[in-house]
């Protein structure tokens, strides 16, 4: 808190440098069928991979007692895989609503940064087009869209097209997953009780960003283990995540 003044100063000088380098105008961004098509086709192979997570999510949703319709509704309206899997992990009777919503918000905060990165192009689109496309934004199609826009294609509808591809596979595979989950029966016999841990191991492998992840992950692990020991319910998850985030904020600039 006390060094806020210093931070603001360094920010201002950075902002000035940025405005200097912004002399080069981005290319004109259009929004049409061509962009939707390109986004959809480019994303198809990756959307098939998204289907793997959808099946896993469907199985987990079925295990905590969500119906196929409820799981599909969640996939269709939330469209954010990691947060949905975490929500289902927290699901219980009665539903811990506040904890679930807090966790979903915390996990998805990164989307604000990702959406902000699209600003140079999306500032040229109407609000309906820009925000409508962002509804379908997930990690995979965001990355492909950034790559496309950065290569000066000016295809403003790329995110919409690639979002449609991801959304279709995500919702479809969720429904398949709930059917698979229903057919399995007693989870422990087939080791299905381990599937949640396995999903999170796989998620962790994908979220690992090299050495920069090391300190935050150790902090999150240590905090969560301690908090699980001394705090009630599932608070250890949010406490672990929050402490890791705060430590990273403090550590930054080291």
């Amino acid at each position: 808190m006390t060094d806020r003044g210093a931070v603001n100063e360094s920010e201002q000088s950075e902002a000035e440098q940025e405005t200097d380098s912004e002399a080069t105008e981005p290319t004109t961004v259009t929004f049409g069928r061509r962009g939707v098509r390109a986004g959809f086709l480019t994303t198809l192979p990756i959307a098939v991979g998204v289907g793997g997570y959808g099946i896993a999510f469907g199985v987990l949703a079925d295990q905590v007692g969500l119906s196929a319709a409820e799981a599909a509704l969640m996939s269709a309206t939330v469209v954010a895989g990691a947060s949905q899997i975490i929500a289902v992990e927290l699901w219980a009777d009665p539903i811990p609503i506040a904890t679930i919503l807090l966790a979903v918000f915390a996990v998805n905060l990164r989307y604000s940064l990702m959406g902000a990165a699209l600003q140079p192009w999306f500032s040229q689109l109407s609000a309906v087009r820009a925000y409508g496309s962002l509804f379908l934004m997930a990690d995979e199609n965001w990355a492909l869209t950034m790559r496309d826009l950065k290569s000066d294609t000016g295809r403003g509808a790329f995110l919409l097209g690639s979002g449609i591809a991801v959304w279709s596979f995500w919702v479809g595979s969720t429904v398949i997953g709930t059917a698979v989950g229903g057919a399995i029966g007693d989870p422990a016999v087939y080791g299905i009780d381990f599937i949640l841990a396995a999903v999170f191991v796989a998620l962790a492998a994908e979220l690992w960003e090299g050495r920069s992840s090391l300190v935050p992950w150790i902090v999150a692990l240590a905090t969560a283990l301690l908090a699980a020991e001394f705090l009630p319910g599932q608070w250890y998850i949010l406490v672990g995540g929050a402490v890791a985030g705060i430590v990273e904020v403090i550590r930054y600039d080291e």
Binding site: V7, I86, R110, L113, A197, F200, A220, Y236, G240, A244
Partner: peptide, 21 residues
Amino acid sequence: DRLEAGISVLPGAIVIAILGP
């Protein structure tokens, strides 16, 4: 940038916080 760095570690940190215990 400082806040951005903090936010960007959240998904991985939360996954680890679930997985560890």
